[in-house]
């Protein structure tokens, strides 16, 4: 028991590693602040583009989205970080993570948002357009608010996955939370920093999980 406490719940070790962990936490927050908006913006763009009446364009978009949903994110990240430099494109850790997350999570967000847009009845478009609203205004004021509301649980759930996935940035030596915890672990020969990192993730994600289960159990909206 004593051994367990001293190697997993060692407060002194965690305290000694606090600077590393804090920096890791800050970098993880930075990654979240980059990955989530990029994914959402890219996903929205893809979802809107897929409204085009041009069939071949829709087909190409579907292939694009399928491709990046099928490709394991870790493989994608390693390729962007380690493969693209062979084509003369050196993005560095942060740039690689940003590009990989843009490609990966925008594909998921796109599918969710497209389903949301599809869930809004045609009559909503018709009512808005017949009153003179432009296509863009119709999207922004009438269709997207309803679309987002209809798929909010899926959006939150996907965001949860994106946040968790930021830990893969550790493989390209991006000093985020997991990477820094492992550094601390190898320096101190103690697993407590990893436990601390896990706890930080838990604290970060638990509110999101609560929110998600509330959304999933709420009564059907008034629509």
């Amino acid at each position: 028991m004593e051994l367990f406490v001293s190697s997993f719940l060692n407060v002194e070790v965690v305290w000694a590693a606090r600077a590393l962990l804090l920096q890791g936490f800050a970098n993880t927050m930075l990654l979240i602040a980059i990955a989530v908006p990029l994914g959402l913006a890219g996903g929205l763009l893809l979802a809107l583009l897929s409204l085009t009446p041009v069939r071949i364009a829709r087909l190409l978009l579907a292939v694009w989205v399928d491709l990046f949903r099928a490709l394991p994110p870790l493989v994608l990240l390693v390729f962007v970080y380690g493969g693209l430099p062979f084509a003369g494109l050196e993005l560095g850790p942060l740039g690689s993570v940003a590009v990989a997350f843009l490609l990966n999570s925008s594909a998921y967000y796109a599918e969710i948002l497209r389903a949301g847009i599809d869930s809004v009845p045609r009559g909503q478009w018709e009512a808005a357009r017949s009153s003179g609203l432009s296509a863009l205004d119709t999207l922004g004021w009438v269709v997207l608010p309803q679309a987002v509301r209809n798929v909010l649980p899926d959006l939150v759930s996907n965001t949860l996955e994106v946040v968790k996935l930021t830990s893969i940035a550790s493989v390209v030596a991006m000093p985020e939370l997991l990477y820094q915890a492992r550094q601390a672990q190898s320096v101190t020969y103690n697993a407590s920093p990893l436990v601390a990192a896990a706890l930080i993730y838990l604290l970060l994600l638990w509110p999101l999980v609560r929110l998600l289960s509330r959304l999933e159990h709420r009564l059907p909206s008034r629509m």
Binding site: P121, E126, A127, S131, G132, L133, P145, Q146, R222
Partner: peptide, 20 residues
């Protein structure tokens, strides 16, 4: 067409009010 549609009001069978 948007300027013109403003001059032509339309009412639908299913109302099509914006629920939000």
């Amino acid at each position: 067409i948007n300027a013109l549609r403003r001059r032509i009001g339309m009412v639908f069978q299913s109302f099509n009010l914006y629920p939000h």
